[in-house]
Design a binder for these strands. Structure first.
Length: 422
DNA sequence: TCTGGGGTCCTAGGACCC
DNA sequence: TCTGGGGTCCTAGGACCC
Protein backbone atom coordinates (compact mmCIF):
# COMPACT_ATOMS: atom_id res chain seq x y z
CA UNK A 1 0.00 0.00 0.00
CA UNK A 2 1.27 3.47 -0.88
CA UNK A 3 2.40 5.35 2.17
CA UNK A 4 0.71 8.70 2.62
CA UNK A 5 2.27 11.07 5.08
CA UNK A 6 0.85 14.50 5.86
CA UNK A 7 2.83 17.36 7.34
CA UNK A 8 0.65 19.96 9.02
CA UNK A 9 2.44 23.25 9.60
CA UNK A 10 0.97 26.20 11.49
CA UNK A 11 1.33 29.35 9.42
CA UNK A 12 3.58 31.98 11.05
CA UNK A 13 2.79 30.20 14.29
CA UNK A 14 3.89 32.74 16.93
CA UNK A 15 2.34 35.59 14.99
CA UNK A 16 -0.91 33.64 14.58
CA UNK A 17 -1.00 33.05 18.35
CA UNK A 18 -0.61 36.77 19.04
CA UNK A 19 -3.29 37.63 16.48
CA UNK A 20 -5.84 35.53 18.36
CA UNK A 21 -5.78 38.03 21.17
CA UNK A 22 -5.00 41.18 19.20
CA UNK A 23 -7.28 41.50 16.20
CA UNK A 24 -5.56 44.77 15.23
CA UNK A 25 -2.59 42.64 14.16
CA UNK A 26 -4.52 40.93 11.35
CA UNK A 27 -3.38 41.76 7.82
CA UNK A 28 -0.45 43.74 9.22
CA UNK A 29 3.26 43.05 8.90
CA UNK A 30 4.02 41.52 12.32
CA UNK A 31 7.16 39.94 13.75
CA UNK A 32 7.81 38.20 17.05
CA UNK A 33 11.19 38.73 18.71
CA UNK A 34 13.46 36.36 20.64
CA UNK A 35 14.51 36.60 24.25
CA UNK A 36 15.60 40.18 25.18
CA UNK A 37 13.92 41.27 21.95
CA UNK A 38 17.19 40.31 20.29
CA UNK A 39 16.18 39.12 16.86
CA UNK A 40 13.24 38.09 14.69
CA UNK A 41 11.99 34.53 15.23
CA UNK A 42 8.60 34.65 13.48
CA UNK A 43 7.11 36.73 10.67
CA UNK A 44 3.66 37.19 9.24
CA UNK A 45 3.40 36.73 5.50
CA UNK A 46 3.07 40.51 5.14
CA UNK A 47 6.40 40.90 6.97
CA UNK A 48 8.02 38.22 4.79
CA UNK A 49 6.91 40.16 1.75
CA UNK A 50 8.67 43.41 2.78
CA UNK A 51 11.03 41.46 3.25
CA UNK A 52 12.07 40.97 6.86
CA UNK A 53 14.43 37.99 7.00
CA UNK A 54 14.34 35.27 9.64
CA UNK A 55 16.87 35.81 12.43
CA UNK A 56 17.77 39.43 11.70
CA UNK A 57 18.72 41.44 14.77
CA UNK A 58 16.07 43.86 15.92
CA UNK A 59 18.25 46.94 15.42
CA UNK A 60 18.36 46.25 11.70
CA UNK A 61 14.58 46.57 11.39
CA UNK A 62 14.17 49.31 13.99
CA UNK A 63 13.43 51.91 11.32
CA UNK A 64 10.61 49.80 9.90
CA UNK A 65 9.08 49.51 13.36
CA UNK A 66 9.42 53.19 14.17
CA UNK A 67 7.81 54.23 10.91
CA UNK A 68 4.90 51.87 11.56
CA UNK A 69 5.61 49.53 8.64
CA UNK A 70 6.19 46.56 10.94
CA UNK A 71 4.75 45.70 14.35
CA UNK A 72 7.25 43.96 16.61
CA UNK A 73 6.18 41.91 19.64
CA UNK A 74 8.07 40.27 22.49
CA UNK A 75 7.62 36.51 22.64
CA UNK A 76 5.32 34.65 25.02
CA UNK A 77 6.34 31.00 24.99
CA UNK A 78 3.84 29.91 27.61
CA UNK A 79 1.04 31.00 25.33
CA UNK A 80 2.59 29.34 22.27
CA UNK A 81 3.14 26.07 24.14
CA UNK A 82 -0.47 26.01 25.30
CA UNK A 83 -1.91 26.70 21.86
CA UNK A 84 0.45 24.17 20.31
CA UNK A 85 -0.87 21.46 22.61
CA UNK A 86 -4.43 22.29 21.58
CA UNK A 87 -3.56 22.19 17.88
CA UNK A 88 -1.83 18.81 18.23
CA UNK A 89 -4.67 17.28 20.22
CA UNK A 90 -7.19 18.48 17.65
CA UNK A 91 -5.21 16.96 14.79
CA UNK A 92 -4.42 13.64 16.45
CA UNK A 93 -7.68 11.97 15.43
CA UNK A 94 -7.31 12.68 11.72
CA UNK A 95 -4.60 10.09 11.05
CA UNK A 96 -3.80 6.55 12.16
CA UNK A 97 -0.77 7.88 14.03
CA UNK A 98 0.80 11.24 14.81
CA UNK A 99 4.34 12.49 15.34
CA UNK A 100 4.60 15.91 16.96
CA UNK A 101 7.72 17.18 15.24
CA UNK A 102 8.04 20.69 16.66
CA UNK A 103 5.99 23.34 18.41
CA UNK A 104 4.18 24.16 15.17
CA UNK A 105 4.34 21.01 13.04
CA UNK A 106 3.21 17.43 13.14
CA UNK A 107 3.17 14.44 10.82
CA UNK A 108 0.08 12.29 10.41
CA UNK A 109 0.05 8.86 8.81
CA UNK A 110 -2.83 8.81 6.30
CA UNK A 111 -1.89 5.52 4.68
CA UNK A 112 -5.07 3.73 3.59
CA UNK A 113 -7.19 6.88 3.69
CA UNK A 114 -9.09 6.91 0.35
CA UNK A 115 -9.57 10.68 0.44
CA UNK A 116 -6.54 12.23 2.13
CA UNK A 117 -7.13 15.69 0.66
CA UNK A 118 -10.67 15.87 1.99
CA UNK A 119 -9.54 14.59 5.37
CA UNK A 120 -6.87 17.27 5.60
CA UNK A 121 -9.20 20.05 4.48
CA UNK A 122 -11.51 18.99 7.29
CA UNK A 123 -8.59 18.92 9.74
CA UNK A 124 -7.48 22.45 8.84
CA UNK A 125 -11.02 23.74 9.21
CA UNK A 126 -11.35 22.11 12.60
CA UNK A 127 -8.07 23.60 13.88
CA UNK A 128 -9.07 27.01 12.57
CA UNK A 129 -12.52 26.79 14.12
CA UNK A 130 -11.58 25.25 17.48
CA UNK A 131 -8.19 26.82 18.13
CA UNK A 132 -8.06 29.72 15.69
CA UNK A 133 -4.72 28.88 14.09
CA UNK A 134 -4.33 28.71 10.27
CA UNK A 135 -2.33 25.78 8.88
CA UNK A 136 -0.89 24.41 5.65
CA UNK A 137 -0.82 20.72 4.78
CA UNK A 138 1.48 18.80 2.48
CA UNK A 139 0.95 15.16 1.59
CA UNK A 140 3.47 12.77 0.08
CA UNK A 141 4.85 9.23 0.31
CA UNK A 142 7.78 10.33 2.50
CA UNK A 143 8.34 12.93 5.21
CA UNK A 144 10.70 14.89 2.96
CA UNK A 145 8.18 15.06 0.13
CA UNK A 146 5.37 15.95 2.56
CA UNK A 147 7.44 18.85 3.90
CA UNK A 148 8.07 20.13 0.39
CA UNK A 149 4.37 19.79 -0.41
CA UNK A 150 3.46 21.87 2.64
CA UNK A 151 5.64 24.71 1.34
CA UNK A 152 3.69 24.64 -1.92
CA UNK A 153 0.42 24.46 0.03
CA UNK A 154 1.14 27.81 1.72
CA UNK A 155 0.48 29.55 -1.58
CA UNK A 156 -2.80 27.74 -2.36
CA UNK A 157 -6.33 28.80 -1.35
CA UNK A 158 -7.22 25.29 -0.15
CA UNK A 159 -4.05 25.15 1.95
CA UNK A 160 -3.49 21.50 1.01
CA UNK A 161 -1.15 20.13 -1.63
CA UNK A 162 -0.60 16.48 -2.56
CA UNK A 163 2.66 15.49 -4.22
CA UNK A 164 2.00 13.50 -7.41
CA UNK A 165 3.23 9.88 -7.40
CA UNK A 166 6.75 9.34 -8.81
CA UNK A 167 6.70 10.08 -12.54
CA UNK A 168 6.64 13.01 -14.96
CA UNK A 169 4.15 15.01 -12.88
CA UNK A 170 6.35 14.80 -9.80
CA UNK A 171 9.41 15.72 -11.87
CA UNK A 172 7.64 18.82 -13.08
CA UNK A 173 6.85 19.91 -9.52
CA UNK A 174 10.37 19.23 -8.22
CA UNK A 175 11.96 20.95 -11.20
CA UNK A 176 10.50 24.27 -10.10
CA UNK A 177 11.74 24.16 -6.51
CA UNK A 178 15.19 25.40 -5.45
CA UNK A 179 17.27 22.77 -3.71
CA UNK A 180 17.55 24.91 -0.58
CA UNK A 181 13.90 24.12 0.22
CA UNK A 182 14.68 20.49 0.95
CA UNK A 183 14.53 19.29 4.55
CA UNK A 184 18.11 18.45 5.53
CA UNK A 185 19.83 20.66 2.97
CA UNK A 186 21.53 23.43 4.93
CA UNK A 187 24.20 25.98 4.01
CA UNK A 188 27.16 23.57 3.95
CA UNK A 189 25.29 21.06 1.84
CA UNK A 190 24.13 23.77 -0.56
CA UNK A 191 27.68 24.98 -1.12
CA UNK A 192 28.76 21.53 -2.30
CA UNK A 193 25.67 21.07 -4.45
CA UNK A 194 26.39 24.38 -6.20
CA UNK A 195 29.78 23.10 -7.25
CA UNK A 196 28.03 20.04 -8.69
CA UNK A 197 25.66 22.34 -10.58
CA UNK A 198 22.65 21.01 -8.67
CA UNK A 199 20.08 23.79 -8.65
CA UNK A 200 16.58 22.33 -8.37
CA UNK A 201 15.11 19.63 -6.18
CA UNK A 202 14.75 17.54 -9.33
CA UNK A 203 18.51 17.78 -9.97
CA UNK A 204 19.10 16.50 -6.45
CA UNK A 205 16.55 13.70 -6.75
CA UNK A 206 18.29 12.50 -9.91
CA UNK A 207 21.72 12.19 -8.29
CA UNK A 208 22.80 8.61 -7.72
CA UNK A 209 22.33 7.92 -3.99
CA UNK A 210 25.76 6.27 -3.95
CA UNK A 211 27.39 9.55 -4.87
CA UNK A 212 25.64 11.31 -2.00
CA UNK A 213 26.61 8.46 0.27
CA UNK A 214 30.30 8.91 -0.52
CA UNK A 215 30.19 12.65 0.12
CA UNK A 216 27.70 12.88 2.98
CA UNK A 217 27.23 9.43 4.37
CA UNK A 218 23.82 8.08 5.21
CA UNK A 219 22.39 11.54 5.91
CA UNK A 220 22.88 12.72 2.34
CA UNK A 221 21.85 9.40 0.93
CA UNK A 222 18.56 9.48 2.80
CA UNK A 223 17.74 12.94 1.48
CA UNK A 224 17.99 11.70 -2.10
CA UNK A 225 16.13 8.46 -1.46
CA UNK A 226 13.30 10.26 0.30
CA UNK A 227 12.96 12.63 -2.66
CA UNK A 228 12.58 9.57 -4.87
CA UNK A 229 9.71 8.37 -2.74
CA UNK A 230 11.65 5.80 -0.76
CA UNK A 231 10.82 6.15 2.94
CA UNK A 232 13.91 6.44 5.15
CA UNK A 233 12.34 8.34 8.06
CA UNK A 234 9.45 6.65 9.79
CA UNK A 235 6.96 8.34 12.05
CA UNK A 236 7.97 8.47 15.68
CA UNK A 237 4.97 8.28 17.97
CA UNK A 238 5.06 9.67 21.46
CA UNK A 239 7.85 11.76 22.91
CA UNK A 240 11.22 10.01 22.94
CA UNK A 241 13.14 10.29 26.22
CA UNK A 242 15.48 13.27 26.13
CA UNK A 243 19.20 12.67 25.68
CA UNK A 244 20.18 16.10 27.00
CA UNK A 245 18.40 19.00 28.67
CA UNK A 246 19.61 22.56 28.16
CA UNK A 247 18.64 25.80 29.83
CA UNK A 248 20.52 28.84 28.59
CA UNK A 249 20.00 32.52 27.99
CA UNK A 250 21.77 35.46 26.48
CA UNK A 251 21.97 38.46 28.78
CA UNK A 252 20.77 41.80 27.55
CA UNK A 253 24.24 43.20 28.30
CA UNK A 254 27.63 41.78 29.26
CA UNK A 255 27.84 40.60 32.84
CA UNK A 256 31.07 40.64 34.82
CA UNK A 257 29.78 40.52 38.41
CA UNK A 258 29.86 37.14 40.14
CA UNK A 259 26.57 37.60 42.06
CA UNK A 260 24.71 38.25 38.81
CA UNK A 261 26.20 35.17 37.22
CA UNK A 262 25.42 33.00 40.23
CA UNK A 263 21.83 34.19 40.33
CA UNK A 264 21.33 33.48 36.64
CA UNK A 265 23.01 30.08 36.79
CA UNK A 266 20.98 29.02 39.83
CA UNK A 267 17.74 29.78 38.08
CA UNK A 268 18.92 27.80 35.03
CA UNK A 269 19.79 24.85 37.26
CA UNK A 270 16.39 25.01 38.97
CA UNK A 271 14.60 25.05 35.65
CA UNK A 272 16.73 22.18 34.33
CA UNK A 273 15.92 20.13 37.43
CA UNK A 274 12.20 20.75 36.88
CA UNK A 275 12.44 19.72 33.24
CA UNK A 276 14.28 16.56 34.20
CA UNK A 277 11.74 15.61 36.85
CA UNK A 278 8.78 16.27 34.60
CA UNK A 279 10.28 13.95 31.95
CA UNK A 280 11.31 11.34 34.56
CA UNK A 281 14.96 11.84 33.70
CA UNK A 282 17.96 12.06 35.99
CA UNK A 283 21.37 13.45 35.07
CA UNK A 284 24.61 11.56 35.49
CA UNK A 285 26.53 14.79 34.92
CA UNK A 286 25.89 18.51 34.61
CA UNK A 287 27.85 21.08 32.65
CA UNK A 288 27.88 24.82 33.35
CA UNK A 289 29.24 27.18 30.73
CA UNK A 290 29.86 30.87 30.11
CA UNK A 291 30.55 32.53 26.82
CA UNK A 292 31.51 36.00 25.68
CA UNK A 293 29.72 37.98 23.01
CA UNK A 294 30.51 36.12 19.81
CA UNK A 295 29.84 39.21 17.70
CA UNK A 296 32.61 41.21 19.34
CA UNK A 297 35.77 41.07 17.28
CA UNK A 298 38.12 41.03 20.28
CA UNK A 299 36.68 37.94 21.96
CA UNK A 300 35.48 35.48 19.37
CA UNK A 301 34.51 32.07 20.72
CA UNK A 302 35.77 32.87 24.17
CA UNK A 303 34.19 30.83 26.88
CA UNK A 304 34.59 27.86 29.10
CA UNK A 305 32.76 25.04 30.73
CA UNK A 306 33.05 22.76 33.70
CA UNK A 307 31.39 19.41 34.15
CA UNK A 308 30.46 17.80 37.41
CA UNK A 309 29.78 14.10 37.58
CA UNK A 310 27.37 12.75 40.17
CA UNK A 311 28.08 9.47 41.91
CA UNK A 312 24.42 8.59 41.36
CA UNK A 313 22.28 10.24 38.70
CA UNK A 314 20.08 12.99 40.11
CA UNK A 315 17.33 15.46 39.31
CA UNK A 316 17.21 17.09 42.72
CA UNK A 317 17.11 20.89 42.62
CA UNK A 318 19.53 21.47 45.53
CA UNK A 319 22.06 18.99 44.16
CA UNK A 320 22.01 20.53 40.71
CA UNK A 321 22.00 24.10 41.98
CA UNK A 322 24.93 23.45 44.31
CA UNK A 323 27.01 21.76 41.64
CA UNK A 324 26.30 24.51 39.12
CA UNK A 325 27.01 27.25 41.63
CA UNK A 326 30.40 25.78 42.51
CA UNK A 327 31.30 25.53 38.84
CA UNK A 328 30.18 29.07 38.03
CA UNK A 329 32.31 30.47 40.83
CA UNK A 330 35.29 28.57 39.47
CA UNK A 331 34.60 29.66 35.91
CA UNK A 332 34.35 33.24 37.06
CA UNK A 333 37.77 32.94 38.73
CA UNK A 334 39.25 31.40 35.60
CA UNK A 335 37.90 34.31 33.56
CA UNK A 336 39.35 37.01 35.80
CA UNK A 337 40.33 39.78 35.47
CA UNK A 338 38.65 40.63 32.19
CA UNK A 339 35.89 38.08 31.86
CA UNK A 340 32.69 39.65 30.58
CA UNK A 341 29.91 37.26 29.79
CA UNK A 342 27.05 37.54 27.35
CA UNK A 343 25.57 34.11 27.65
CA UNK A 344 25.44 31.27 30.14
CA UNK A 345 23.83 27.90 30.36
CA UNK A 346 23.37 24.60 32.13
CA UNK A 347 23.40 21.27 30.31
CA UNK A 348 22.21 18.01 31.84
CA UNK A 349 23.78 14.97 30.24
CA UNK A 350 24.15 11.24 30.71
CA UNK A 351 20.41 11.19 31.29
CA UNK A 352 18.74 8.03 32.58
CA UNK A 353 15.16 7.15 33.44
CA UNK A 354 14.71 8.15 37.07
CA UNK A 355 12.06 5.52 37.74
CA UNK A 356 14.39 2.80 36.51
CA UNK A 357 17.10 4.33 38.64
CA UNK A 358 15.01 3.83 41.74
CA UNK A 359 14.93 0.12 41.14
CA UNK A 360 18.42 -0.30 39.77
CA UNK A 361 19.99 1.82 42.47
CA UNK A 362 20.87 -1.31 44.39
CA UNK A 363 21.55 -3.31 41.27
CA UNK A 364 25.02 -4.36 40.29
CA UNK A 365 25.46 -1.93 37.44
CA UNK A 366 24.53 1.16 39.39
CA UNK A 367 26.50 0.06 42.42
CA UNK A 368 29.58 -0.59 40.33
CA UNK A 369 29.30 2.81 38.67
CA UNK A 370 28.72 4.59 41.97
CA UNK A 371 31.72 2.89 43.52
CA UNK A 372 34.00 3.67 40.62
CA UNK A 373 33.01 7.31 40.47
CA UNK A 374 33.13 7.99 44.17
CA UNK A 375 36.62 6.47 44.36
CA UNK A 376 37.79 8.81 41.65
CA UNK A 377 36.07 11.79 43.28
CA UNK A 378 37.72 10.99 46.61
CA UNK A 379 41.08 10.77 44.95
CA UNK A 380 40.51 14.04 43.12
CA UNK A 381 39.41 15.96 46.17
CA UNK A 382 42.30 14.58 48.24
CA UNK A 383 44.84 15.71 45.70
CA UNK A 384 43.34 18.93 44.43
CA UNK A 385 40.74 20.03 46.92
CA UNK A 386 37.91 20.18 44.40
CA UNK A 387 35.48 17.87 42.72
CA UNK A 388 34.62 20.15 39.83
CA UNK A 389 35.98 18.80 36.60
CA UNK A 390 37.32 20.84 33.72
CA UNK A 391 36.16 20.00 30.27
CA UNK A 392 36.61 23.43 28.66
CA UNK A 393 38.04 23.20 25.21
CA UNK A 394 37.82 26.84 24.29
CA UNK A 395 39.36 28.61 27.26
CA UNK A 396 41.54 30.42 24.80
CA UNK A 397 41.17 34.16 25.17
CA UNK A 398 44.49 35.90 25.54
CA UNK A 399 44.27 36.20 29.31
CA UNK A 400 43.20 32.65 29.87
CA UNK A 401 45.47 29.72 30.18
CA UNK A 402 44.37 27.16 27.62
CA UNK A 403 43.26 23.96 29.22
CA UNK A 404 45.17 20.98 27.95
CA UNK A 405 43.45 17.66 27.78
CA UNK A 406 39.80 16.91 27.95
CA UNK A 407 37.55 15.33 30.43
CA UNK A 408 35.01 12.77 29.57
CA UNK A 409 32.48 12.28 32.33
CA UNK A 410 32.57 8.53 32.00
CA UNK A 411 36.33 8.20 31.90
CA UNK A 412 37.27 8.35 35.52
CA UNK A 413 40.88 7.52 34.80
CA UNK A 414 41.54 10.82 33.11
CA UNK A 415 40.03 13.20 35.60
CA UNK A 416 43.16 13.83 37.61
CA UNK A 417 45.32 15.00 34.76
CA UNK A 418 42.61 17.44 33.72
CA UNK A 419 42.22 18.77 37.22
CA UNK A 420 45.95 19.43 37.48
CA UNK A 421 45.76 21.79 34.54
CA UNK A 422 42.56 23.50 35.64
C1' DT B 1 24.40 49.89 21.88
C1' DC B 2 21.46 46.15 20.07
C1' DT B 3 22.57 39.58 17.16
C1' DG B 4 17.53 33.21 20.31
C1' DG B 5 17.11 28.72 22.59
C1' DG B 6 16.69 23.90 22.44
C1' DG B 7 17.37 19.93 20.32
C1' DT B 8 18.94 15.52 17.12
C1' DC B 9 21.87 12.52 14.37
C1' DC B 10 26.15 11.07 12.33
C1' DT B 11 31.13 10.28 11.80
C1' DA B 12 36.11 10.15 12.42
C1' DG B 13 39.22 8.81 15.23
C1' DG B 14 41.05 8.10 19.95
C1' DA B 15 41.12 4.96 23.90
C1' DC B 16 41.05 0.68 25.51
C1' DC B 17 40.93 -4.37 25.79
C1' DC B 18 42.26 -8.89 24.46
C1' DT C 1 63.84 -3.40 22.34
C1' DC C 2 60.59 -4.34 19.01
C1' DT C 3 56.51 -6.14 17.59
C1' DG C 4 49.89 -6.70 15.76
C1' DG C 5 45.26 -6.55 14.69
C1' DG C 6 40.37 -6.75 15.60
C1' DG C 7 36.50 -5.20 18.14
C1' DT C 8 34.04 -1.99 20.88
C1' DC C 9 33.14 1.99 23.34
C1' DC C 10 33.26 6.79 23.61
C1' DT C 11 33.80 11.75 22.53
C1' DA C 12 34.11 16.14 20.05
C1' DG C 13 32.47 18.46 16.58
C1' DG C 14 29.87 19.23 12.30
C1' DA C 15 25.54 19.79 10.24
C1' DC C 16 20.97 20.34 10.46
C1' DC C 17 16.18 21.34 12.25
C1' DC C 18 12.44 24.58 14.14
Amino acid sequence: MLRQIALIDCNSFYVSCERLFEPRLRSKAVVVLSNNDGCVVARSKEAKRIPVEMGVPFFEIKDLVETGKVIALSSNYTLYGDLSARVMTTLAGFGRSQEVYSIDECFLDLTGDPKPTETMIAARCRVLRDVGIPTSVGIGPTKTLAKLASEIAKGLPAGVFVMPPPGPALAEVLGKLPVAEVWGVGPAFQATLRTWNIKTVLDLARLPPERMQRKYGVVGERVVRELRGEACHLLVEGPEPKQTITVSRSFSRDIAALPDLRAAASSFAERAAEKARSGHRAAGAVTAWLSANRFKADAPDCGGSLTHVFPVATNSTPELVNAVDAMVRRLWELGQPEGRWKKAGVLLLDLVDDRARQTSLFGEVERERAGRISTALDEASRRFGTTALCSGTRLLSKNWKPLAGRCSPRRTTRWNEVLEVG
